[in-house]
């Protein structure tokens, strides 16, 4: 596939019943780009986690606010931006969850960012308190995931 740039955009009310639509949207684009099923699953889950955080934490389950998802396809690279205008937070205060501690405190949630960082190649969180948050996630299509175009055409 030649180097080309493509942008996809989804603006959707911040409701948990839209998570399935968001996952389908992201998965279809990732499949089109040529990611294997395993990576598509990872991308889908990472975006679900980012959007779940927006719905539950940034917007406190207030569905009147939109979640904005932009997917940028560059050569061998998928960049996903999840943007909200909800409550900001201090990303430097995030710590890797101690699972035993979570269990002891019966805390639910808070595992999403940890998962996102494990599932994607790059994760960057920008938060402006009072203005909103943006999660930028990148997945590269370079690790032998898809057959190179020459090999696919040669037989």
């Amino acid at each position: 596939m030649a180097a080309k740039s493509n942008k996809f955009h989804l603006k959707i009310p911040s409701q948990t019943d839209n998570l399935e639509i968001i996952r389908d949207f992201v998965a279809k684009i990732a499949r089109k780009v040529g990611f294997n099923e395993d990576d598509i699953n990872k991308i889908e889950l990472a975006v679900d986690e980012a959007c779940t955080n927006v719905i539950k934490h940034a917007y406190d389950n207030n569905s009147k606010n939109p979640i904005d998802i932009t997917i940028q396809i560059d050569y061998q690279k998928l960049t996903i931006l999840v943007t909200d205008k909800g409550k900001g937070f201090d990303p430097t205060k995030l710590k890797t969850p101690d699972l035993q501690e979570y269990l002891a405190e019966m805390r639910v949630g808070g595992l999403g960012i940890y998962l996102m960082k494990n599932l994607m190649d790059e994760v960057e969180i920008n938060s402006k308190p009072g203005k909103g948050n943006q999660v930028r996630m990148v997945k590269y299509l370079d690790k032998g995931d898809a057959p190179p175009p020459q090999a696919a055409n040669s037989s």
Partner: peptide, 16 residues
Amino acid sequence: SYISSAGLGVFMGFIE
């Protein structure tokens, strides 16, 4: 067919 951390959180909430 699919699980996110919200699902896992449910188990954490009850196990104790």
